[in-house]
């Protein structure tokens, strides 16, 4: 029987040196599903994504992607397998042009079809020769997501994608994420509840390194207040 979930995070605990950050966190992600993880600063959201993307080795627990355990594998192997992480700091390569940023991703994935990137982010087409350092926050976010969707990843981990962006861009991103999920499952970590309520099919609340709530009813998600998740 085919597994209903493309990603399973089982009982993950993690720490930075002596400081424990995650305590037995679990969640599952179905193909084409959009889930969100909400929590205060320091709750362990980014740490959780890093554990899933193999950037941080959990102290216990394991991650299964497409039926295979990926805990302990190298980050580039996980990325090549189609599980991509989009960092929260709008970290495009500043000294490289938009074209070079996209080329890098194309070469790594063997996917040179940039039309899908321009379909979601047409603005990038006119910015191709502009260096990363000269892009606005929104343009950087577009480039990061555009770079990540090359190679048609099966799972995208998006860390605070709306942070510092203008409301108009946030609204556009919501539309893009909904369209993207036709082919890619999304895990979105964000604190913007109105954004989350527009796109998430399931929301987890994380507090002090523990999952404290899970809401899967769309209506309930739209009505939920921030305090519900904390």
């Amino acid at each position: 029987m085919e597994d209903a979930f493309i990603l399973k995070v089982n009982d993950i605990s993690a720490s930075y040196g002596q400081s424990k950050v995650l305590f037995g966190v679990s969640f599952n992600l179905g193909p084409h599903e959009r889930i969100a993880i909400v929590g205060r600063n320091g709750a362990g959201k980014t740490t959780l994504l890093k554990c899933v993307a193999a950037l941080l080795k959990p102290t216990s627990g394991f991650v299964v992607y497409e039926g295979e355990e990926i805990t302990g594998r190298k980050p580039f192997e996980v990325a090549r397998a189609g599980l991509k992480y989009v960092h929260q700091d709008k970290g495009v390569f500043q000294d490289l042009t938009v074209r070079e940023n996209l080329k890098l991703s194309s070469y790594a994935t063997g996917d040179y079809d940039w039309s899908k990137v321009f379909k979601y982010f047409p603005k990038l087409k006119i910015l191709l020769d502009k260096k990363g350092a000269g892009l606005s926050g929104g343009e950087k976010q577009m480039l990061m997501i555009g770079r990540a969707i090359l190679g048609s990843p099966k799972v995208l981990l998006l860390d605070e994608p709306t942070e510092g962006l203008a409301p108009g861009i946030v609204s556009d991103l919501a539309t893009v994420f909904c369209e993207l999920s036709e082919n890619t499952a999304l895990v979105i970590v964000d604190q913007n509840l109105s954004f989350i309520s527009k796109i998430a099919q399931r929301v987890y609340g994380i507090k002090e390194g523990k999952m404290v709530v899970e809401i899967s009813d769309t209506q309930e998600i739209q009505q939920a207040s921030y305090s519900r998740f904390l």
Partner: peptide, 17 residues
């Protein structure tokens, strides 16, 4: 470009595979 990316941020290059 990959060389420059290493100089800028090695970890982020790994995210790309």
């Amino acid at each position: 470009a990959a060389c420059l990316a290493v100089k800028i941020n090695e970890e982020k290059l790994r995210f790309l595979g």
